[in-house]
């Protein structure tokens, strides 16, 4: 049905973003395909060096999963910031990935963790690195007829450190600015991965900040300031009530606080 291009067809995952769009008549597909009864997409398992998560795993299941707690701590840190419990009870990780809302936590976290998105279609299966998956506001590397099947996230190792910080006006709101950070080590910093959400048109990797901090102690003030200054002002988006300038300032603060939380 999803492969049929004679009618507009929309897969429905947890519905916590799509249903509002349908209710407000912003989205008007001719056909909805409900994925909620596909039990085969609700797994969380370890396969070699990755945690493999089915697209239809709901946020609440992730929050209650000891595997996620142990092996993907950054994801566990981000989950409580996603909306509210009743929404997390339905919302799915695959839905968030496929929607690609640049203000959402999941895309940034997955990009920061160098996750892989497994997608399927009538023609088979392929894997797309998160790095190349999120292309813009609600825009992904999914082709026509493709669905998110699952997500593979490398297991955290013992020395791995993570930081997460989000600035939202109210609990559960989309972030005004937020950042997910992963590092192989922090003293000095190695293999830093810094990805912002809620600041640009897609999860934004802070390439320059990563470079500035690489090899420095995470609490090195000068490096921290330089990293803050290196954030790309030109990519920051303004919207109602928040200018691009403010966004930049908030992103800088979020970065500092995320990094300092890792030093503790």
């Amino acid at each position: 049905m999803i492969a049929d291009d004679t009618q507009t067809c929309q897969p429905l995952a947890g519905g916590q973003s799509l249903m509002p769009m349908l209710n407000l008549r912003v989205a008007q597909p001719e056909v909805l395909v409900d994925l909620n009864r596909i039990a085969a997409l609700s797994f969380i398992e370890i396969q070699n060096d990755v945690v493999h998560i089915g697209a239809m795993v709901r946020y609440t299941a992730l929050m209650h999963s000891p595997l996620i707690d142990k092996h993907v701590p950054l994801l566990a840190m981000a989950l409580p910031y996603i909306a509210h419990q009743a929404v997390r009870n339905r919302g799915t990780i695959g839905g968030s990935v496929a929607l690609a809302d640049p203000a959402a936590e999941m895309p940034a976290v997955l990009k920061a963790l160098a996750a892989t998105i497994v997608v399927v279609s009538a023609h088979g299966q392929r894997e797309i690195p998160a790095e190349a998956f999120f292309l813009g506001i609600y825009e992904t590397a999914l082709d026509e007829g493709e669905l998110v099947h699952s997500i593979k996230i490398p297991l955290a190792t013992s020395g791995h450190r993570f930081g997460f910080y989000e600035l939202a006006r109210r609990h559960g709101d989309y972030a005004m600015a937020g950042v997910a950070v992963s590092a192989q080590s922090i003293n000095p910093c190695t293999e830093l991965s810094i990805v912002f959400f809620g600041v640009a048109d897609q999860p934004l990797r802070a390439v320059d900040a990563q470079a500035v901090l690489e090899g420095c102690a995470i609490s090195d003030n000068a490096a921290l300031t330089a990293a803050q200054q290196s954030l790309p002002a030109e990519l920051m988006l303004g919207d109602t009530g928040v200018s691009a300038d403010t966004r930049l300032q908030l992103a800088r603060v979020a970065l500092k606080r995320a990094l300092l939380s890792m030093a503790d």
Partner: peptide, 13 residues
């Protein structure tokens, strides 16, 4: 047994 938004589910679901 799980709290959900009644407006964000279809009756058929």
């Amino acid at each position: 047994g799980v709290a959900v938004r009644g407006c964000l589910m279809l009756a058929v679901q």
